[in-house]
Simulated assay, not measured.
Amino acid sequence: MEEDYVEVRKSWWERNWKWFVPTGCVSILLIFVLFIAGIFFGVTSMMTNSDVYKGTMNEVQHNQLVIEKLGTPIEDDGMTSGSINTTNNDRGNCNLQIPIKGPKGQATVFVVAEKKGVWKYSEMTVFIKATKEEIDLLKK
C-alpha cells in the first residue's frame, strides 16, 4: 500500500515573518527619526533665515572689537537656540543665542528684540568664551 503524501505549503507570512518583522520595525523607526530631524532642521532654518538673525550676524561681522577678539571670518558655530514669535509680520518678539566662531576663538551672541513694525533690539551682546568678556553691540 502506497502512502500518499500531501505537501502542505506554508503561507507567505509563515515563510517570511522572520525578516519582515525586524525590517518593518526598523522602517517605522527610520521614518520617525526622519520626521523629527525634518522638524528640527525646519525650525533651525527658520531662525537662521529670520531678519533678526541676519541683522545680528551683520552687526557681529562688522564690529571692530569683535573682529579684534575673534578674527575674521566670523561665522555661526552650531545650532542657534531660542525663540522667534511673530504675528502678521507686524508684531513679535525674539530671544536668541547664536554660537559664533572666528580664527581666534568662540563666542555666543545673545539677542533680545521686540517687533512693532520693525525690530527694536533691547539686547545684542557677544560673550567671548576664552576671556569671559561681554561686548555690547548696541553701544555706538
Rank of each mutant, 00 (worst) to 15 (best):
E2F: 10
D4Y: 11
Y5Q: 10
V6N: 11
E14G: 11
R15T: 04
R15Q: 09
N16V: 04
N16C: 11
W17N: 02
W19I: 15
F20N: 14
G24I: 00
G24V: 02
S27P: 05
I28E: 14
I31F: 11
I31T: 11
F32H: 14
F32S: 13
V33P: 12
F35M: 15
A37I: 05
A37L: 13
A37M: 14
G38T: 10
I39H: 12
F40A: 07
F40I: 03
F41S: 12
T44S: 06
T44V: 06
S45I: 15
M46D: 08
M47E: 02
T48P: 08
M57F: 04
M57I: 13
N58G: 12
E59I: 11
V60D: 08
H62L: 14
N63M: 11
Q64T: 12
E68Q: 10
G71Q: 00
E75L: 13
G78Q: 11
G78T: 02
G78L: 04
G82L: 01
N88S: 14
N89S: 09
N89L: 03
R91V: 06
L96D: 00
L96I: 02
I98L: 00
P99Y: 02
I100G: 01
K101S: 11
G102T: 08
V109F: 02
V109Q: 09
F110P: 10
V112C: 06
A113G: 01
E114Q: 06
E114D: 08
G117Y: 03
Y121M: 03
S122F: 07
E123V: 15
M124A: 03
K132W: 06
E134G: 01
D136T: 03
L137W: 02
L137D: 00
L138Y: 01
K139N: 02
K140P: 07
